[in-house]
Computed example of a mutant assay.
Amino acid sequence: MTTKPKLCYFRGRGRMESIRWLLAAAGVEFEEEFIETREQYEKLQKEGLLLFGQVPMVEIDGMVLTQTRAILSYLAAKYDSYGKDLKETVRINMYADGTLDLMMMIALAAFKPPEEKEENLTLIVKKAKTRYFPVFEKILNDRGEDFLVGNKFSWADIQLLEVILMVEELDASVLADFPLLKAFEARISNIPTIRKFLQPGSPRKSILQF
């Protein structure tokens, strides 16, 4: 019997959400253990499970993994979402890193003082529209394919959809000038495993749970 991956993190999005997305897109069921007390966190540290004293932590394939980028890379390779060769893999890495930069801006904004938060979120939407989304619109236009890399669904597509939805929570009209991204969003959202993850009651965390 195959053991489900076990995810250990705080009860929120943070750095674990992209891991949830990747597993869900692969159709992999997982369990979650939420850290809700200081004692739980200290116990993990004392047991030597947190390599650099940080979560997220994922137990999978007899291993205990930490460091978000390493976890995502492993899962992408394991579930065939990492390209067919090194050239595709490096492009997937570039696109995923770009989307991760934008995601972290949004996540960190949640912890800003109230008087700074609104201004900061407005700036993030502006950066999405002027720096990040134009890049992906051009990629889709230049390649003329349904997916970002190799005309096959990959980790890059998962993370791009995730960040599009995050920015749309801040500004529902953010894709008004990006028709190819809008079509991409509809197309990827309709993949059965992703459609399931987007339904109420799934492990996906809400905007209030950063």
Rank of each mutant, 00 (worst) to 15 (best):
I188A: 09
A186D: 12
L175D: 08
S18G: 15
E59T: 05
V64E: 11
E42D: 15
I164D: 01
P114G: 11
F34V: 12
Y79A: 04
Q67I: 06
Y132G: 00
L22H: 06
K129L: 11
F111Q: 13
A77M: 05
R131V: 11
E47I: 02
E145W: 04
K127T: 07
A77I: 02
Q209G: 02
E47Q: 09
E59L: 04
R195A: 15
L121D: 10
L75S: 13
L180F: 00
Y79N: 05
R38P: 08
Y9V: 04
E119C: 01
E42K: 15
L121E: 14
E17W: 01
N141R: 14
M57R: 04
L75M: 10
L102V: 07
F197V: 00
T68N: 11
F184R: 03
L198F: 04
N120M: 05
F147N: 13
L161N: 02
W155A: 00
K78W: 13
F184A: 02
F153D: 03
R20H: 00
E115S: 13
P5Y: 02
K196Y: 07
S173K: 15
L175C: 07
L121P: 09
K43V: 07
M166P: 01
D61L: 10
G48H: 10
E145K: 15
T37M: 13
E59C: 01
R11P: 01
A128T: 03
M57L: 10
T122C: 04
G144E: 09
L23Q: 09
A24E: 01
Y132M: 04
I106W: 05
E162W: 02
I139F: 00
E33L: 10
A186E: 13
M166H: 09
A77R: 13
Y74C: 07
G201R: 01
L180G: 04
G14P: 01
P134G: 07
G12T: 14
M104K: 12
L86A: 13
A110H: 15
L102N: 06
G53P: 10
S189Y: 09
K129N: 07
Q199T: 15
L181G: 12
F210D: 00
E162D: 06
E32V: 13
V149K: 04
L51M: 06
F30Y: 03
Y132D: 00
K6W: 11
K84M: 14
G48Q: 07
Q209A: 07
S202E: 02
V174G: 07
K126Q: 09
A109V: 06
L165Y: 10
I106T: 10
K205G: 04
Y41V: 08
L44Y: 14
D85Y: 06
A107Q: 08
I164W: 12
